[in-house]
Amino acid sequence: MHVGLEHYLVVTALLFSLGLLGVIARRNLLVIYMSLELMLNAANLALVSFSRFTDNLNGQVMVFFIITVAAAEVAVGLALIVALYRKKQTAHVEDLTTMKL
């Protein structure tokens, strides 16, 4: 069977759900952040495959922007995690319950 758009989209969906599972199931703040990156990458793959199969380069420019924003986001998020670790001495979500009512 020839590999078409659906094949790529199925991979995208599976990868996105893997990232979602990581965000829900893992308890380490850094691993949760990595799962977020996984979800972001799944979206990128979907955009690139749509761009390929609809003959339109705009999707790839979008992915270029997303990669840049993701780099900035990772820098800010990791700085936040480091600041949080300095204050609380932990990177476990179960120990960070200050905002719980």
Partner: peptide, 17 residues
């Protein structure tokens, strides 16, 4: 495609679980 897709999903799984 199948090789790279399998690698991506397998390694993604190993990131999470």
């Amino acid at each position: 495609f199948y090789i790279f897709a399998a690698l991506t999903l397998l390694c993604g799984l190993l990131v999470v679980v």
